[in-house]
Design a binder for these strands. Structure first.
Lengths: 190, 190
DNA sequence: CGCCGAGTTGAACTGAATCAAGAAACGTGG
DNA sequence: CCACGTTTCTTGATTCAGTTCAACTCGGCG
């Protein structure tokens, strides 16, 4: 469980006691590649902490899949509406590789937040980080052209291009696969 | 302080004791319209809880202001990078009307989170809400055309159009003022 | 071998931006 | 209370980044 634990502690110095309380309710699962963890319209109040593997979150709009996020080792994947708005969401999450995840229900998490101030604070910071990451993506969308967004992702997450289909990456960048292909072709001239 | 307190309690049932600990470190300020509360590149580790009034957050990109958020009664305004990434951010926040705000430093907030589990949980939920609101805006950008975005905002926040210049709203919707004007003209035909 | 998914390339199209004027509303001082 | 400048909003003509539709290439694999 090393990837998850070190990620937790990188956010907040959770005490051993609180960490034990958390990890002992984790359920370990191994999901094959291409498993749908979360479906829109299907209420799933669980959080998947990824120990090994990668998932993508996407939404469907007019028949097309729009990739909104990739979650990798140490990250948590969930349907945010399911958890927080108490109704079924619009997101899908699927594994892109075989994925080992530790699963916990929101009810259990909520119980832990009420008892362990360290866990409440850890999740407070995790939420902050999620907000900031989303804000980065959002502002990048507002300010940068398709090409600039591609180059930024290439610089910051080069490993992603090894793990994930270009089609998904194009969608995550908010461009069509064709446009991404053209951008890459142009770049290859140098 | 009614607007702020009821908003806090709408997120989490904070005990009277914890709420008192929070509110007694608030400092009340009245800012005239058009006051810059937060400047990019200028480290400001304070949170402004808005009791009365409205602010807009914006970023500068290639000489242009891009409005990213409006904060109204009960909301909190801050420079998110200042607070959480411990370096000066890129956001500006200015009042659009005379604004009464209760101000608190992040250091004091952090101290409170460590002592009062209710406050840690309240802020955990507040961060969740911020994330969800940003996610809504972000996904709306991905899925909807300029016109659809306008109509959605018109439906969900009609009051905003009374309080705020169309130019700022256009920018918040991610379109130019000219395009927004055209959309509204077209709509007026019915 | 032939099929299938992933990626590339070409041509035509389009939503929204940009550039450039005007018109209306707003506020401030004489 | 009106004249004047300033800001806000509208309208028109043109341009462009990125989409769409469609065909084609390539590598893997039953």
């Amino acid at each position: 469980m090393q990837n998850i634990i070190s990620k937790i502690r990188s956010y907040y110095p959770v005490s051993d006691e609180a960490l034990d309380a958390l990890t002992c309710v984790f359920e370990r699962h191994v999901f094959p590649s291409k498993t749908l963890l979360i479906r829109a319209e299907q209420f799933d109040r669980q959080v998947y902490f990824i120990e090994q593997g990668i998932t993508r979150s996407y939404i469907l709009h007019e028949g097309k899949e729009i990739t909104t996020w990739f979650s990798q080792e140490g990250d948590a994947a969930c349907g945010s509406w399911d958890l927080y708005r108490h109704k079924a969401g619009f997101e899908y999450v699927e594994t892109l590789e075989q994925t080992i995840a530790y699963v916990i229900s929101v009810e259990q998490l909520d119980r832990l937040y009420r008892s362990y101030i360290d866990l409440a604070n850890w999740m407070r910071i995790l939420q902050q980080e999620n907000f900031l990451r989303l804000q980065d993506v959002h502002i990048c969308r507002l300010n940068l052209s398709a090409k600039e967004r591609y180059e930024l992702l290439m610089k910051e997450q080069p490993a992603l291009f090894q793990r994930v289909n270009l089609g998904y990456i194009a969608s995550f960048l908010g461009i069509t696969q064709q446009s991404l292909s053209r951008i890459r072709a142009e770049e290859r001239l140098f």
